[in-house]
């Protein structure tokens, strides 16, 4: 039988990556229901850190959805990212309470110190800055989340100090390692 290229392409591509298996298991767990796309994307992003073309193609084929559909949904929601994450991530809450308490000053100083605006990654790929609304800790505003750690009542200076410390620790660790 003649198998055209298109047909063979449409099967989910074979993969050795165990993280892909995790995604495949998730699709299966949701009974291949197409309406679970957002759940599957959450799981995929957790496993890979971001959503690249291979991964999105894999999901589309597993769930039998048009490619554009998957991309359209993933790009609609701010949580999903198509770029690899930086080594360190500093999330600054820009919700109303944090804004009122000076979150913009934190962002301004971050840009001045590290040259990174919200949504950007530093040139060396080590630090990304994200703005986010909101983790729901308004009583402790302004709020930061540095590498997953939730921090309240921060100032521009304390933020810079924390990040410098973080970057310096890496350097030390690298110097010790070899």
């Amino acid at each position: 039988m003649l198998v055209t290229k298109q047909q063979s392409d449409y099967a989910p591509p074979a993969t050795e990556d165990p993280r892909m298996d995790e995604v495949a298991r998730a699709v299966k767990r949701f009974g291949y229901q197409q309406d679970a796309l957002i759940e599957v994307l959450h799981i995929a992003q957790r496993a890979f850190g971001y959503l690249d073309e291979t991964l999105l193609t894999y999901i589309a084929r597993q769930m039998k959805l048009p490619l554009g559909w998957v991309y359209g949904v993933a790009s609609f929601y701010h949580f999903f990212s198509f770029e690899p994450p930086a080594e360190h991530n500093c999330v600054v809450c820009t919700g109303t309470a944090c804004y009122v308490e000076g979150a913009q000053k934190i962002l301004d100083l971050l840009e001045k110190e590290f040259g990174v605006k919200p949504g950007q990654v530093s040139a060396d790929g080590r630090l990304s800055v994200t703005d986010f609304r909101c983790p729901g800790s308004c009583g402790q505003a302004p709020i930061l989340v540095i590498d997953g750690e939730l921090l309240g009542r921060e100032t521009p200076e304390s933020t810079i100090a924390r990040i410098k410390q973080l970057l310096a620790n890496d350097k030390q660790a690298k110097e010790v390692a070899p």
């Binding site: 729901g136 009583g139 402790q140 939730l150 921090l151 309240g152």
Partner: peptide, 8 residues
Amino acid sequence: ASTPCLSA
């Protein structure tokens, strides 16, 4: 253990 207290 709610979020604001965690951040503190």
